[in-house]
Amino acid sequence: MNEPVVSETYAAQIRRLAELTARVAAQRAEAHTWYAQQCAAADRAVAEAAEQVRRAEADAAEARELVDRVDAEVAHLWEELRTRVRSGGRRLGDPPGPARDAAGDPVSRLRGVRDLLDRIRQRGELPGSANPLLVGCGVGGSLVAYALGAGARALGHGSGGDLAVGMPVLALVITLLGPLVGLAPARLLADRRHAMLTPRAITVVVAAGLVATVLLLVLTR
């Protein structure tokens, strides 16, 4: 019986086929591994991009909230400044817009403006240089009161009956109130200078008005 003869060439081809099959399987496994790595990297990139978008949206929302808060605070502080300037006889327009080259924390800047307005809001005392004006207020008030009293006396002299008796008394009361009349213009003076009408200033006005009233009564007696 004849036995099959194995050719060396056939055996070599079988070995080569096995090697190629193993190489293809290794390359296929390598390709699957590379694909899985690329998918994982893509997934990580997408997740990181989504996280960056989320952070950017949160930062944008926080920035919008800060802008709204700063705009509201600016409008409030500007309205306070406008009220204060208007009380001083001047007019103030709309608040200025944001500066292009502005830098720094707007919250700290607004805090500084708020502190400045608080210091301005605290009224001080009229300086000594305002004493002549306070004396003028006292003297002027006395002159006005004396003029009104003189008018009341003249009306009483020209009338009869109860008016002739009551008008001189009313005229005397008005004249004696002259030193206090000057407090009204003195208060306006203090408001225009954003100051308080302190007891010292009141004393100057009343003393000047009292001296003027006494002199008027003595000179016209």
Rank of each mutant, 00 (worst) to 15 (best):
D94F: 07
D94H: 11
P95Q: 02
P95H: 00
P96C: 03
G97P: 06
P98D: 02
A99C: 09
A99F: 09
R100C: 09
R100D: 12
R100L: 13
R100I: 12
A103I: 10
A103W: 11
G104I: 07
G104D: 04
G104P: 04
G104R: 06
D105K: 07
D105G: 07
P106A: 04
P106M: 08
V107N: 02
V107I: 13
R109M: 11
L110D: 01
L110T: 06
G112V: 13
R114C: 05
R114T: 10
R114S: 14
R114N: 07
D118M: 09
D118T: 13
R119E: 14
R119V: 14
E125S: 11
L126C: 00
P127W: 03
S129M: 03
N131F: 09
P132S: 01
V135M: 06
V135F: 06
G136K: 03
C137Q: 01
V139D: 02
G140R: 01
G140K: 03
S142Y: 03
V144Q: 04
V144G: 05
V144S: 05
V144F: 14
A145E: 00
A145M: 01
A147I: 07
L148S: 06
G149T: 08
G149L: 07
A150W: 15
A150Q: 14
G151S: 13
A152N: 06
R153T: 10
L155P: 06
G156I: 06
G156N: 02
G160I: 06
G160P: 07
L163R: 02
V165M: 14
V165A: 15
G166I: 14
M167T: 09
P168I: 11
P168N: 09
V169I: 14
V169S: 13
L170Y: 12
A171N: 09
A171I: 12
A171Q: 08
I174D: 03
T175V: 11
L177F: 15
L177V: 12
G178E: 03
G178S: 04
P179C: 09
P179K: 05
P179V: 05
P179W: 00
V181N: 04
L183S: 11
P185I: 05
A186V: 08
R187F: 09
R187Y: 08
L189E: 03
L189T: 03
D191K: 10
R193D: 03
H194G: 06
A195L: 04
M196S: 15
L197F: 08
